[in-house]
Amino acid sequence: MLELRLVQGSLLKKVLESIKELVNDANFDCSSTGFSLQAMDSSHVALVALLLRSEGFEHYRCDRNLSMGMNLNNMAKMLKCAGNDDIITIKADDGSDTVTFMFESPTQDKISDFEMKLMDIDSEHLGIPEAEYDAIVRMPSAEFARICKDLSSIGDTVVISVTKEGVKFSTKGDIGAANIVCRQNTTVDKPDDATVIEMKEPVSLQFALRYTNFFTKATPLSSTVTISLSNELPVVVEYKIAEMGYVRFYLAPKIEE
């Protein structure tokens, strides 16, 4: 028996909107730790890892570890039917081939339930070690989204370089080239508007903008984004979910063969 009650249901709506274009089907894993997911895109160069910790739910009952295969587009369709202020409860019985999403309006005058069929998914789970990164950039998530969108109108790939001077996003295409430099800026009114760069080693990595643009669908989840980079290793783009957990995207760099 599984019953997870999330008062801020809009968080789950935003999570689905942020990952449904990158991944078609995924197993949601439920344990005493929380509600989590790890899934790769179809070409296996990008991965999403989601964690919603059990403490973030108003009510969290998960009698035994459960893995529920869901089509993310179908799940997003159902969650779109929840109001932004609704409380969302996820329910499943042991051995059932369905999951139920219950939506309650804040005043309790409208209660809906949507039952979705589960699916069997053979998923490959990757062991991702906690790593020390050469450079970590924290910046406003809207700024990162704007940069990825702007650069993708010029080129297909972005080179992200971190030096003492700041973080540089560069692209080249048929019509020309573009460079955007963001300097460390901590003298802002609101901490979330700051750009903070922690650098151990200079880093320069190239990525496909098609994927970074998918990642920025998570912008509504957090006002800041953290980009962790090490030379020759996949980048981690993390959006924290207030008090509850995170959505992390991993992307393989384009490297010389």
Binding site: M40, V45, L126, A252
Partner: peptide, 14 residues
């Protein structure tokens, strides 16, 4: 020529 290797190139499957 630059190439994107799959993530299984970097991380082991569990």
């Amino acid at each position: 020529m630059r190439r994107q290797f799959p993530l299984t190139f970097y991380f082991a499957m569990t």
